[in-house]
Design a protein around this nucleic acid. Sequence first.
DNA 1: TAGAGAGTTAGCCAATCATCTAAATGATAC
DNA 2: GTATCATTTAGATGATTGGCTAACTCTCTA
Lengths: 94, 94
Amino acid sequence: MRNDQVFKALADPTRRKILRMLGRGEMSAGEIAESFPITGPSMSHHFSVLKSADLISGRRDGQQIVYSLNTTVIQDLMTVLLDTFKQEPIGEES
Amino acid sequence: MRNDQVFKALADPTRRKILRMLGRGEMSAGEIAESFPITGPSMSHHFSVLKSADLISGRRDGQQIVYSLNTTVIQDLMTVLLDTFKQEPIGEES
DNA sequence: TAGAGAGTTAGCCAATCATCTAAATGATAC
DNA sequence: GTATCATTTAGATGATTGGCTAACTCTCTA
């Protein structure tokens, strides 16, 4: 896990909102982009940053790219954060 | 809570290391700075960013400034992160 | 009250970042 | 094949960032 890339990816509010949207289920690049006032290429850049951080994955479905949350890496992120701040693990593995 | 400031504060590895050090207990600016290869003014800048995000607080003790983790805001951060990634209805975040 | 120690503030600079437009790629339909 | 739709890649630009040196503030002690 590339911590630095993950935290840098989270530093942008647009990318955090993308993650929250994908938390509800997978969506195509276009569907996601509709919710933002920025251009397609800019959105594509954000997807690319999130992919590099392994926070999301994309698969092609016809003409569209469908993105989804990479929950494994997100679990790891939580672990790192808990470690960073010395909080007690929350209801961890059984 | 200023989410955007918090996430931006976390985006820098030096600042994350400062937070981990303070997780073990409060330390003076000088003690913290010893662990980094950068100048005092640059360290002071990082303390300032962390203070603006309310992640740490500093109090003067004689000639030194003693910093400590602001655990309340860190609890809030955890809540926001869980909200972001736990596939629950999304609210309005920065 | 002068000097030294600990940090911060001010100002500068190079690198990175988020955004844009234009052009390219990939997939589908005619 | 060619047109079209969805998305990415390339290249440019202004804003932000993290680092530096110099100068300042605050506190302590002689």
